[in-house]
C-alpha cells in the first residue's frame, strides 16, 4: 500500500495509443516469466524480495495468472533461463531485468518475435522498440539529485571523495550526472575509486582515503551498502565529526538513521528496488483488464530527508 502511494508520486506514465485486447480466452491461465539477476548484493537482494512478494500477492489476487521466476548469476545463465521459459513453460509474457544490455537484446527480441509480451526493467536493451513496456529507475537523476545536495550544502573549496560501483554504463551515467551537478560549485573531488557496491571493498577503499587525505568534508558513497562500509572506516579513524556521507538506494537501516537525524547521514537518494513490483503489476494488468499499458515508466530519484524518511521505510524488506 505504501509502495503504491510512493509510485503514484514518482512514476510518470506515458501511455501509448492503441487498443489493448485481453490476451486470454476465458479459463486459460496466463503465464508470466520473470527473469532477474540473483541476489548478489543489497540492492538486488531487495529487488528479489520485492519480486517474490509481488508475485505472491498477484497470484492471490488474480487466480488466472501464473508466474515463473528465474534468477541468474551470470549473463549466459540468464539467456538460458529465457530460452527455457519459452521452450518448456510456454510463457505469455516476459518481465526481464537484463544482466547486460548487449547480450540479452537478441534473446529478448526472439521472445517478442514469437508474439509474446515483453516488459524490460531498469536496464534498457541495445535496440529500440523491442519491449512493450519499459520500467526503470533514473540513473542520471540519481547522480544529479546527490550532486545538487552536495552543491547546496558545501562551500566552494570543499573537498570530497567518491566511491564508484562496478565499472558499468549505469555507474558512468550516475557519476557523470553527479559531476555535472556540482560543476561550478568549487567543490574538489579528491579521489574516485571503485568500491564495487560491496561493504568490505568500500571499507578498505575508505580506510585508504582516510590515510591519504588529511581533510575530507563529505563522501558520496553512491550506494547504501558502500555507505555502511564507509561509515565504519570513518568511525575507526575517529573522524566522524569531520565529514558526512550520502549513500543511495534507500536501504532500511540507512533510512532509519536519517529518520533519527544522524548528523553523519543527512540524506539519501532513492533508487528503489521496488521498481520490479511496478513492472510486474503493470504487466499483470495487461492480462486481467483492458487498461492500455504500453509505454515507458521512469521512476525518478528523490532525496530522502529526515522530513520525508518515514514514507521510504519498509522494516520488513531485507533491504
Amino acid at each position: 500500500m505504501e509502495r503504491r502511494t510512493f509510485l503514484a508520486t514518482t512514476a510518470a506514465a506515458v501511455a501509448a495509443a492503441g487498443l489493448a485486447t485481453p490476451a486470454l480466452a476465458q479459463g486459460k491461465k496466463a503465464v508470466i516469466g520473470v527473469s532477474i539477476p540473483s541476489a548478489t548484493h543489497g540492492f538486488m537482494g531487495g529487488l528479489n524480495w520485492h519480486a517474490q512478494e509481488t508475485i505472491k500477492r498477484l497470484k492471490a489476487t488474480y487466480p488466472n495468472l501464473d508466474f515463473v521466476l528465474a534468477t541468474a548469476g551470470a549473463v549466459g545463465k540468464q539467456v538460458n533461463d529465457i530460452e527455457d521459459m519459452m521452450a518448456t513453460r510456454n510463457i505469455d509474457a516476459l518481465v526481464v531485468l537484463p544482466f547486460e544490455s548487449e547480450p540479452l537484446t537478441s534473446p529478448v527480441k526472439a521472445v517478442k518475435d514469437a508474439g509474446k509480451w515483453v516488459t524490460v526493467v531498469d536496464r534498457g536493451l541495445s535496440q529500440e522498440g523491442i519491449e512493450d513496456l519499459y520500467v526503470a529507475g533514473d540513473n542520471t537523476a540519481f547522480g544529479r539529485v546527490a550532486g545538487e545536495y552536495f552543491k547546496a550544502n558545501l562551500k566552494s573549496g570543499a573537498k570530497i571523495v567518491v566511491l564508484r560501483g562496478i565499472p558499468t554504463t549505469l555507474d558512468n551515467e550516475r557519476v557523470d550526472a553527479f559531476r555535472k551537478a556540482i560543476d561550478g560549485s568549487g567543490i574538489e573531488i579528491l579521489d574516485m575509486q571503485h568500491g564495487n557496491w560491496n561493504r568490505d571493498k568500500a571499507f578498505s577503499v575508505m580506510q585508504d582515503y582516510l590515510s591519504k587525505h588529511k581533510k575530507i568534508d563529505a563522501v558520496w558513497a553512491a550506494d547504501d551498502d558502500m555507505a555502511i562500509g564507509v561509515l565504519e572506516a570513518i568511525s575507526q579513524s575517529g573522524r566522524q565529526k569531520e565529514m558526512w556521507v550520502v549513500g543511495g538506494a534507500g536501504m532500511k537501516e540507512i533510512v532509519k538513521r536519517i529518520m533519527d537525524k544522524d548528523p553523519q547521514l543527512p540524506v539519501d537518494v532513492t533508487y528503489p528496488p521496488a521498481l520490479i513490483s511496478t513492472a510486474l503489476e503493470i504487466t499483470a494488468l495487461r492480462f486481467v483488464s483492458d487498461t492500455p499499458v504500453y509505454g515507458r515508466f521512469i521512476i525518478g530519484s528523490t532525496l530522502i530527508t529526515p522530513a520525508n524518511a518515514a514514507q521510504f521505510y519498509f522494516p520488513n524488506s531485507p533491504f
Binding site: 548484493h41 537482494g45 560491496n198 561493504r199 568490505d200 551498502d225 562500509g229
Partner: peptide, 12 residues
C-alpha cells in the same frame, strides 16, 4: 565485528 553483517557478497 568489523561490519557486523553478512550477506551473499561476503567473502566473495
Amino acid at each position: 565485528p568489523r561490519l557486523g553483517s553478512a550477506s551473499g557478497s561476503t567473502g566473495m
